[in-house]
Amino acid sequence: MNPEATIILIGILVSWTCGLLGVFLVVRRMSMLGDAISHAVLPGIVLSYLFMGERNSILLMAGAALSGVLVTVLIETLTRKARMQEQASVGISFTLFFAIGIILVSLYSGNVDIDADCVLYGEIAMTPFDKWSWMQRDMGSRHLAVLTGVLMVLGAAIFMGYKGLMVTSFNAEFALASGVAAAAWHYVLMSGVALVTVVSFEAVGAILVVGFLAIPPATAWIWTKRLPNMILLTLLFGALSAVSGFYVARLLDSSISASMTVVALLIFLFSLLLQKVKQKRVLDPGRQRSPHQVFYKR
């Protein structure tokens, strides 16, 4: 496969894995928690690098998922036990984790081949050249393979757990009353976010992960309120921003992953404006005022 197609495909896969989770984060009003977790996996990633000295092992993912879950536990503890405001405990917890991660990166920058900037915005342009082989045969880009695998696992998990996720997202009391383990779903979702961050951060960095977690689902939410439609639209918008982001980046000669985020934001703003125009037309057809309305206006 040629490098360009690989990059675009990786962009689409990242947008899909993030979007699938993002839909649930958005309807649960937990978008900033997604932001927090995708920052907080950093120390887990760096420590796993240091100890394993190898990329993308299962242990690396486990380490990152563990630090993602740890930060949610810390947030819960601060809110419940220390009675701190929720926003404040989110802010403190993830900046602490992120800061520790950055310190580790700069302490061991000799041993670890990630740097602080790469953590934030990745380098998707390098992904096609990072290949893997199986039985002496070239199998193409390693990221592509990993992302495909994760997308499939995630898709299957969401398909099977759809009911539980939906019930706990939209009607927490009902879920509690009918014995659905809401807390368990919460942690499933959070570890999912951590996992997605790990597999995508090398390619696209934490910021694009957060962007794809929030922006395409939010755009889909403007157009529909039904969850299945929302998921489909999220996938559509995600793919759209990945593809056009790539070409925008080439046009302007700048970071590909950042361009994808910006395009996603533009699509979002465009949708919002379009929706606003539509609403106005419904409320005020033709924008004609009857004579006495004009009279009262004066």
């Binding site: 900033m32 932001d35 957060v210 929030a214 403007i222 970071s255 950042a258 910006v262």
Partner: peptide
């Protein structure tokens, strides 16, 4: 706006603007 919530608008603005900034910086560097 209608279906949006404060935390969502925060996440969107944050990533969108930061993405734009990274775009500009990489553009400058190259």
């Amino acid at each position: 706006q209608k279906p949006m919530k404060p935390d969502l608008s925060m996440a969107i603005t944050l990533t969108g603007f930061f993405g734009l900034g990274v775009m500009l910086l990489t553009h400058i560097q190259r």
